[in-house]
Each structure stands twice: as C-alpha cells, then as structure tokens.
Design a binder for these strands. Structure first.
Lengths: 345, 345
DNA sequence: GCTACTCATGTAACCGGTTACAGCCGAAGG
DNA sequence: CCTTCGGCTGTAACCGGTTACATGAGTAGC
C-alpha cells in the first residue's frame, strides 16, 4: 500500500499538500497539483478510507437496513435486485458505497453496543461506522423502528414507508393513482362489480392502494361495497382464500383488483379451482409487475412500479440531504398500467 | 458519541485497558473488566470502526463484488435475496458486515485509483477499505476478472465460478450430479431419447451440467447423440429456439433436460407452440428451482439448488480463511430433484 | 530476605489521513 | 523602499482506537 506520505516525499511536498490535491484542488498551484496527480497515478495511490473517515468524522458509506420480517420469513422483496442496482449505480458516481448492516443475528456477538433485533443496535451501528446516510427497506413490520432512525439525525430515505424528520424522507409509488388506474381499466371494459384484495392493514402502500380503489370506483360512478373489499397480506395464499370468499358472495364480482401480483396469482388459481375462466368469467388486475406476471396463464394485467426508479430516487434524495442539510419532499414514483391477458380485450 | 477515553476516565483506568476489555478480555482482571463493561453499557459506548480499522489495518467488512453483465443487462441472479440473507446472517454473527462495492459507474469519480469497469479499480477499492475478505458473485462474464481478485491475496470466495489461489475458493452446486439425477429421472420414466439445452459455453456450471447429462445417459445405458445437445445461454428465448430446433430433428427427443429453469420454460412454450402436450408428448426437467417453476403450466420438475446454502457456505469458507490463513476446499452443495408435473407420473 | 517471574496496567508510538494555523514570498499600493 | 495583502505551502495537532514495551506489585522459590 502506497501512502500519501510516500507521494509527498517523492514530490518534495508535504502530506498536507497531497491531501489538498484530492480534496481542495483549487487551493494547490497548477504545477504542484499536476506533479502530485501524476505520481499518485503512477504509483496507484489509493487513500486509506479508514483514516479518511476517522479524520473527517464521516465515511463514504451509505447504510442499508434490510431484513426479513420474522413474522413472515418467506417474504421476498418484489424487486430488490433492480433496486440495489439503481442505488449502487447512483451512489457510486458520487463515491459512496453501500454497507449492508447486520444486527438481527448478532445475539452471539460480544461487541458492545450491539443488541439484537432492536433498532438501537442498528442506530449504534450507524454511528460507529460514521455513515453518511441510510436507506431503509421495508420488510413489512419495521415502520415504528424506522422512526427511530429518522430521529437519529442521520440522512434517511425509506422505501414504501412514510417517515419524516429533519433529514428524513421517503420514496414510494403513486399507489393511489396506480390503483385508481387499475379500476378505471376494469370499468372501461364494462365491469360494474369490481372487488379488491387488499394488503396488510398496517402497511402504508396497501392502505393507499385501497384508497385508490375507492377513488377509481367513485370516478367511474360505481358504488363502493364493503362486501367487495377482502383483506389479505400480499401473499399468494391470501389472494387465493380471499378470491374464494369473493366468489362465494350472493352477487359475486366480475372483476378484481389485487393489491399485489402475488395475490393476483392467488386469485387466478382460485378462479381456476372454482371452474371460472379468466378473463371471460373474471377479470384480474395485479400490482407490482413481478417477473411471474408475464408467465402465468393468462398473463397478468398489472400496475407496474418503476423498479430502478426506487433506487435512483432514493440515492438522489439521500445525496441532496447529505449536501444541503435539508429534507426533500417525499418522492412519488409514477406507475404504469401493463395490459396483458387477464382482463380480456 | 462516547469514546474509549471517556470510559477510561470514568473508570479510572487508561484507554489501553478499555481497549483490552473488548479485544483481549482475558488479560484484564475481573473487577476492572466488569467495571469497564458496566460503564460502557450504561453510556452505550460503540467503538469507532474507522479508528479500529485504521489501527488494526483490517476492517470488519466483507466486500461484495456484484454487477450486471453489460453484455446481457436483463440478467438477474436467480436467488440473490436468499444468498444475501444467508451471507448476512452468517457473517453478522462474527461481527462482519457486507460492503457492496461499486466501481463500474465510477467514470465520473475524481477519486484517485478508481478507474471504471476494470478489476483493478475493484482491487484498489478492496485495499483502500482494508476489507477482511471478498465474495464474488458471478454475473456471467467476470470469470477472468475474478482471478485478479484471487491473486490479490485477500480471502476470496466466488460463487459458481471456479477460482483458485492461496486464499481463494468457491462454492457451487453439485452440477454434474444434479444434471445426472435429472437424466436418471427421465430415463426411469422410460425415456430413451433425451436431449439437453445447455448454458453458455464459457460458464462453468453450464459445462458441468452438460457433463452430468452425459454421465446420466451413460449410467442409463443410453447413447449420447450430438444432435441432442443444443447450446443456449440460460435465457428463456434460447430455450424456446433450442427446443424448436430439437423438435425439428428427424427423430425428435421425447424428453429434454434444460440447464436452467428459464430455458425449461422456453422449452415448454416451444412445445406448446408446436402443438405438443407436456408431459404427454414431451417431458421437461429444469435446473435452479426458481420461483416461477411452480407457477408455469404444467408446473416444472426441476433440480433445486440450495439457495440459502450458498450464502452460509460462502460465509463459512471466508471466515475460515480469515482465521486460519488456509484455503478450504471448494464447496459442492447438494441439489435436490423436485418432481412436479412436467414429466408425467 | 533476596531474586525471579507472573500478572495487571500504564505509557506512548502508531495507523494514515485532514485541516487550523502560521509562515513565506511576490506583487500591488502608497 | 516599505507595508499590505493574497496565494501557496509547511507544521503540527487531531481523529479514536490498538499494541509493543515498560513498570510495578505481588508471589513463589531458594
């Protein structure tokens, strides 16, 4: 490892000057700067990030808080890969890296300050690494823990969870509008008995999608019927069970908006199990546009989320907070109706 | 932030003693140790990781090298989430975190030592962060870049790419055996004309699966026919195209082993497009057991990989290398035949 | 009772940068 | 010609830990 000291000696300057070349280049005279830059390049000088972080009291890392919800271990984020790629690419162009924070399994750790699954452990972790900011990925039940991060004063961006604070904001899809679009699509095809399969009660996007469903009904001049709202938990099984209940109503719906593609797939299976044909006897719209949506039979019409957009929007918000000390407004990403075969022509 | 100095003053000891309490507890007398531990707990002391890393010349972070192959941007890892969860949980119990390294988009970065997409940039990155080790995730074309990491002397574990070095090893599924199992299953159902759709030529697991296919044929006493081996690239489209070619043979196969589930799905679609019924006219076995495998119609019989096993095995190998300075043998994870509907009874 | 050795702890150098402050030099102004 | 000022550079303190080495107390051995 070549250090700044060696560069300095070779160039006949002090380490301070070397440091300045990379941090405040304007304060170094042209010839000196060029000499240092050239030597640094030749020797493949890479500044030690630990030393840098120690002295600046700020590391070039963004913490990523992400864990499985222990209440539902099978849950997978619908588009984590796209999200990570978006985040990584946007952050890297500003020199930041992503640190995957791990604490929930730390029960056995002897390190002080790390207690298990509690947010305090995470907050302590962010402090000890002098992180520049945090990205919080919803795993289903962390909403209240996230407010602890928002209060910590560190720049925080949450995904799909509404948080607020002096340096906290969030990114989410325009769930209300997306759901309304879904209902409008169904109404436009002539459906008048449109039901919905909702997500978990304590989940913000789920609540917003239910609101959008009602908005969509209202916009189409249709009445909102309580017996057409069945609550689920985003999982396929709850879609299956919920759909069977809907189909057992005296006046069963002819169309259904599912708050997640997984539940929509469940609804498809329920229809098949009941002997109904999709889309002829039942139209189905999902939400997310996960990979399987295009593979099921019939292919699922759905509301697509802007998957890489989550990553880049989160990165941008974070960088703004780091640089300007102000919390930007929450970001509402537009959704897009993807028409496939599950609603008919 | 409370520092070790403050703890030391409150306890009437030196900082060295405080440090020892957390690093070599045995060298501190009982009463002193307990006093320091109590005060540290009360004040929520979290040692500054930058200072720690600086002085130990070793950080508590494992680098994760993962990027999309620019030659095929749509490619997604079949089970990244499970892998990350496994890694994270296994590493966190030893106090390590995962650092997602980003360089390929760093063209605009002014930081010295970081040039874009080349492995040198990555290696420089690993040095400047004083990483404890590296996990290399195959994105399709990085095989030669990975050997650069292996040579760097840092403990390295690659997934699905064979690398070797004084402190390098890899984790992969037992592809040969898995493929042989698939063929054995087909042969056991009476099939005698068994074809295969292979993965990319430069991909090690793909080559192993092809070898397993031949082994399986030999074990069943069947001849290996060159016209039954069609090469693909793991993508669905290549499965579709490849299957059509196979079905156009003078003596078309009655069964096919696809080296990935995506290609198996493509084969399913090709069969449907040709008017063949699966499994009656054609039996299909895939590899991976991705989520859609159970969703397609008919549900796909496939060779399942041990998804969380990849993460935990990688973590274990890495920790062993960090602690013992020796490179463990490559890990071969067992696969499992999952029988669904695409091969008939 | 003196030496030898062990154990616990303190002292201080060190890791490799950043940055406040001081100093030097040349040019502009009086 | 002397002062002033601004631009560039060096000096040294500092970030917060770790650890080699020194020190001193207590104990065992003779």
């Amino acid at each position: 490892m070549v250090t700044a000291r060696e560069i300095a000696e070779l160039c006949g300057v002090s380490v301070a000057t070397v440091s300045r070349v990379f941090n405040q280049p304007a304060s170094v005279s042209g010839p000196t700067r060029e000499r240092v830059e050239r030597v640094a390049r030749e020797l493949d000088f890479s500044p030690n990030e630990s030393a840098r972080a120690l002295s600046r009291k700020q590391s070039a890392m963004i913490g990523l808080v992400w864990d499985t919800d222990h209440r539902r271990p099978g849950w997978r984020h619908p588009f984590l890969q796209d999200l990570l790629l978006g985040l990584k690419s946007a952050l890297s162009s500003h020199g930041y890296h992503l640190l995957l924070l791990a604490t929930s399994d730390d029960a056995r750790s002897r390190t002080p300050g790390v207690s298990l699954a509690d947010p305090v452990g995470y907050v302590s972790m962010t402090r000890r690494h002098h992180l520049a900011g945090l990205v919080l990925i919803d795993s289903g039940s962390d909403a209240e823990a996230f407010t602890a991060f928002a209060r910590s004063g560190l720049p925080c961006v949450a995904l799909d969870v509404a948080i607020s604070g002096p340096k906290a904001t969030y990114v989410t899809s325009d769930n209300v509008r997306g759901a309304a679009d879904a209902v409008a699509h169904l109404a436009g095809l002539g459906h008048r008995r449109i039901a919905t399969l909702t997500g978990p009660r304590d989940n913000t996007p789920a609540a917003e999608r239910t609101r959008g469903y009602r908005d969509g009904l209202a916009a189409a001049g249709l009445e909102a019927r309580d017996d057409y709202v069945v609550s689920g938990d985003f999982y396929r099984e709850s879609g299956f069970v919920g759909m069977r209940r809907l189909l057992a109503r005296k006046e069963p719906p002819t169309a259904v908006f599912a708050a997640s593609d997984e539940m929509a797939v469940g609804a498809l299976l329920a229809a098949r199990a009941t002997g109904l044909r999709v889309p002829d006897d039942l139209a189905v719209v999902g939400f997310d546009d996960i990979e399987v949506a295009s593979l099921v039979d019939p292919a699922l019409t759905t509301i697509a989320q802007d998957k890489p957009g989550f990553g880049t929007a989160a990165a941008e918000a974070l960088l703004k907070m780091i640089e300007t000390d102000a919390a930007p407004e929450p970001v509402l990403l537009p959704t897009r109706l993807v028409v496939r075969d599950s609603c008919g022509a």
